[in-house]
Write a protein that binds this DNA or RNA. Sequence first.
DNA 1: TGGCTATTTGGCTATATTGCCAAATAGATG
DNA 2: CATCTATTTGGCAATATAGCCAAATAGCCA
Lengths: 114, 114
Amino acid sequence: MNEQEKNQYNARARVIKAMGHPSRLFMVDQLQKGPLCVCELTEMVGADTSTVSKHLSILKNAGLVYDQREGNTVYYHLRVPCVLDFLNCVDSVLEVNMDEQIRIVRSCQAKNIL
Amino acid sequence: MNEQEKNQYNARARVIKAMGHPSRLFMVDQLQKGPLCVCELTEMVGADTSTVSKHLSILKNAGLVYDQREGNTVYYHLRVPCVLDFLNCVDSVLEVNMDEQIRIVRSCQAKNIL
DNA sequence: TGGCTATTTGGCTATATTGCCAAATAGATG
DNA sequence: CATCTATTTGGCAATATAGCCAAATAGCCA
């Protein structure tokens, strides 16, 4: 990894890291259906408003969402739609993991270890 | 987010978090071309072997890679190919961010702020 | 202006992550 | 068995992240 590659992977990792948190991932997922304000997301996530606001600013800094003020409520929009495929891929990883777990359990059962 | 949803997003976030590190992302990217041993990856990443080994175990625990021993070298394989699309999506986010930056700079130039 | 609601920011503690060194383990080979 | 190479694990210090409360800010409306 030379310097340029390092920078590139740093930038990429920053975007991915922004999604690597349950609440943030949930919010990104919800925003695919349409924009939501901080108060709605706070309600849905079930955490302190300040916490949700900070999560949103992380997503915003990563370029995943943008905000739009309307009166004194702020609506957040998903900026890049391809994030949907993201979740599909992650779910397929989880599915493979699950299959693997089942295979291991079965093999233990066959050997009478469990 | 009810309890079940919370568990689901925790599991998903764990997989994504595993990729949210420059070195790990780089390794996943490299492994798309084919399996590599720890020593090769260590060389490519340019960090301590123990560091690289720990990164690989994180990827392994997330179910993104699997390992296969051959003599006393261990080869790591990518387990789920869809991760390629992942990077494409991330790059498109970065591209949008870049465009945004340029737009902001231009607008400042137009207003003679810079 | 003053009060009201929505959101952001500052500050703090608890917890998690990172990366190195040193030591342990696994397998090959003399 | 001794030794060598490849890898993993333990331990530690530095740093980053998370989430809450309190305080500040932004925009309404009387």
